[in-house]
Simulated assay, not measured.
Amino acid sequence: MKNIAIIGECMIELNGKPFGAMHQTFGGDTLNAAVYLSRGCELNTEEQAITVSYVSAMGADPLSEGMIARWQQEGINTDLVLHDENRTPGLYLIQLDDQGERTFLYWRNQSPARYLLRHPDFNRIEQSLTKMDMVFVSGISLAILPDEDRSKLLTLLADLRRQGVEVSFDSNYRPALWPNDELRTVKEHYKAMYQTTDLALVTFDDEQLIWGDKTPEDTLTRLHNLGVTKVVVKLGEKGCLVGDTTHDNSYTVPTIPVETVIDTTSAGDSFNGGFLSCYLAGGSLEQSCQRGNALAGVVIQHRGAIIPKSATDVVTQI
């Protein structure tokens, strides 16, 4: 049995054109990854069973309860989702262009997840995390927190790593979430995060934007130098570049090109979920990347962050 805790925020999602047709659902980078990870776990044998726990804070309102119920239907353990009676979930609007690329508008300043570490029951979360095999966070998990809470989370993750919990991180950089888009602040926190990360699942475009990396190999080298043992650099339609210092090797894992891209909203999140479902079950980095690539390829052919489960079932056979 493997146990993974995914820390982050889920919001109400509106998908469509302003003052036009809107589809309402929910999503968030870490929650999306948790859903696709849980779906992928159905492939694994009993000896390789994985418990996926989502760690967040939600309101006590009907929308919050409805979202949590749907996570449970996806097989996600919600015992570590705290309730905040004074706040309601954040909201975001996705606008898509004709090529499937998206832009976002957010309303999340009073989101319960933003104040997760200040919740009076957060000490229960801290104790539970020590029993996990892996804890996964993203750059958005860090960005939404107030400064002092962000530092507290980094300290907590470092402590967990020293206790033998594997820490995984996706940089998932969103400039608008950082105060005044201060790149210096982003670099400071990301550097601290990488220094306590065992497995990095990053997108080259994000790393290039922050650090000015000229090539994916530059990203790989920089992260290894910061102490990250296993690095996966996602390259979109080109697949991903993988580096593992324990075996002193690096290689590219290609993906199958997708002719018709509908919506890239959850491409990286679904890759993470597919990758982790294989990796935690004992798959190699290469096998895990293959499943992540395949799942992302399916997801971007559908609209919305979380696509129907029937559409992803074929990917779990990888």
Results as ranks from 00 to 15, higher is better:
Q317A: 12
R124W: 06
G236I: 04
R124L: 12
G274I: 09
V242M: 06
G164A: 05
Q99L: 09
T221C: 06
Y279S: 03
E65S: 13
L96F: 10
A33K: 05
A311M: 11
V242T: 04
T25K: 05
E9L: 02
G212V: 13
T229C: 00
Q73D: 15
V186M: 12
K234G: 13
I6V: 10
G40Q: 07
K131W: 05
I318E: 01
I256K: 15
D269W: 06
P62L: 11
G297S: 09
L285Y: 12
V298H: 07
A294T: 15
G90W: 04
R222Y: 10
K214T: 11
Q24F: 00
L235A: 04
G282S: 08
G66I: 07
F104Q: 11
E46G: 03
L91C: 06
L295Y: 08
S141H: 00
T316L: 12
P18H: 03
T88S: 14
D205V: 11
L129M: 05
A267Y: 10
L153F: 02
S138H: 01
G66Y: 07
E46W: 12
R87W: 04
C10T: 14
E188I: 03
A143V: 00
A200N: 08
L285N: 08
A69V: 09
L153D: 01
T25Q: 10
T103F: 03
I6H: 00
L183S: 09
R114Y: 11
Q208G: 03
V258N: 08
G227H: 07
A57K: 11
L160Y: 00
G212F: 08
I262W: 01
N3Y: 01
Y106F: 14
H83I: 15
M22Y: 02
E207L: 09
S288N: 12
A294D: 11
V258R: 06
S171C: 15
N15M: 02
D159P: 00
I7H: 01
T30H: 07
V314G: 05
P175Q: 11
P254S: 07
N3D: 10
F275T: 10
L14T: 06
G139V: 05
D313N: 11
E207S: 08
E101V: 00
A49H: 13
C10H: 08
N172A: 02
P254L: 03
M1Y: 02
N44D: 10
K238R: 14
G75T: 12
I12S: 05
G212A: 08
E182A: 14
I262G: 03
S38R: 10
L276F: 14
D218N: 14
L91T: 02
I50E: 14
G20F: 00
V253S: 03
L183R: 15
G297K: 09
Q24W: 00
